[in-house]
Design a protein around this nucleic acid. Structure first.
Lengths: 193, 193
DNA sequence: CGTCTATTTGAATGTACTCAAAAGCGGTGG
DNA sequence: CCACCGCTTTTGAGTACATTCAAATAGACG
């Protein structure tokens, strides 16, 4: 794990003294995950907010018919969790899986509260993180209800070109809210032009 | 405007001294809106984060074909804005309109920053507000991609019964990502049972 | 290699949309 | 107070976007 890069990333949001940064990093527990291993299984309570430092994870919901629907892809410097489960202690509705070999730094719910108390700047940090996440979720909702699948796929390609390279096509279909078969047909159609 | 009720609502998130509450309220500028009046017009920069104290507002995006798509309904104690525009100073992509006679308390972007500096507890307050908003947006995305329109409508009725009473059906259709005609047909079908 | 999973392809089907017209409903002015 | 106007909701027929199911092909990994 490259702590230099991580610290640089944090500086985009808040200014930490070396001491504060040390304390923060001391709360994070690294965990490596081979491709296709689970960070969180459906039904288990989500105990950690995890910061991806390498690789890529996918967070998905499994519906009553066993179909998977992708909530989020998380690459380097993204946080991931089942927030609902993490905050309420309820069983997780989502599965979090490593798409490729990955590494995360886990922050427990209790340490998160501790962090807020010890270094209130982190309230600001997460305020900004959640605010940004909220904005991108708003955009996603709008694209979903306002535009057809082909257009949504184009937008996805533009917005997350690195993710498209990394993850299986079926997950992208799932993220877009369509079947893998239909995404395949969209791609064929787009290639023809 | 009932400041008692408002203060009680804030106590769910943070504890404020009377002095702090006074200061906060002093930053808020009340504005009344008759039904169908705009709080924010598309193209204008969104200058305020607005807390609804009465009535109901709707926040919607207008697509290239002139169709409206509802991002959010905001009733009492809900905040509303075009966050993207508010944070970046860019022209607004959304329109915010009073559905019925309403009242809001506006907080300017500058006063918001001031508030964060004067009373850091508000970082926490908005951290929680955005966190909760994020969770409900996640749920909405999942329902949109995982379930058909009829099921989404049932969920909406369960989750927001008061909103269903208040706003025209066509806005609910729009929120669900379907046409008003189709929602009408869903309702007919549901009534038959 | 061989096995397992992902992707492609095509035909049939279904969910949701478009367009057009009628019916309902609420507000406003004479 | 009620008649009219504009907007919302309903209805139906035809269409389009997207799914389902099944089978073939392609890729990845041990």
């Amino acid at each position: 794990m490259d702590y230099q890069a991580l610290q640089a990333n944090f500086r985009r949001y808040i200014q930490l003294t070396d001491e504060e940064a040390q304390y923060f990093f001391s709360l994070l527990k690294p965990q490596k995950l081979k491709a296709r291993r689970l960070l969180l299984d459906i039904g288990d309570p989500c105990l950690y907010f995890s910061l991806v430092t390498e690789g890529c994870l996918v967070n998905y919901y499994t519906d009553d018919n066993g179909f998977e629907h992708v909530l989020q892809f998380a690459t380097t410097f993204w946080w991931t969790a089942d927030l609902q489960s993490l905050m309420n202690g309820t069983p997780s509705m989502y599965t979090i899986k490593a798409v490729v070999d990955s590494e995360v730094l886990r922050l427990s719910r209790a340490d998160m509260e501790l962090l807020y108390q010890q270094i209130p700047k982190f309230e600001r940090y997460f305020r900004i993180i959640f605010q940004n996440a909220l904005m991108s979720h708003q955009t996603r909702i709008m694209q979903n209800i306002a535009y057809p699948a082909e257009e949504r796929y184009r937008q996805f390609q533009q917005t997350y070109p690195h993710i498209e390279q990394l993850v299986p096509q079926k997950y992208i279909a799932s993220y877009l809210g369509i079947t893998p078969e239909f995404l395949s047909k969209i791609r064929r159609k787009m290639a023809k032009k």
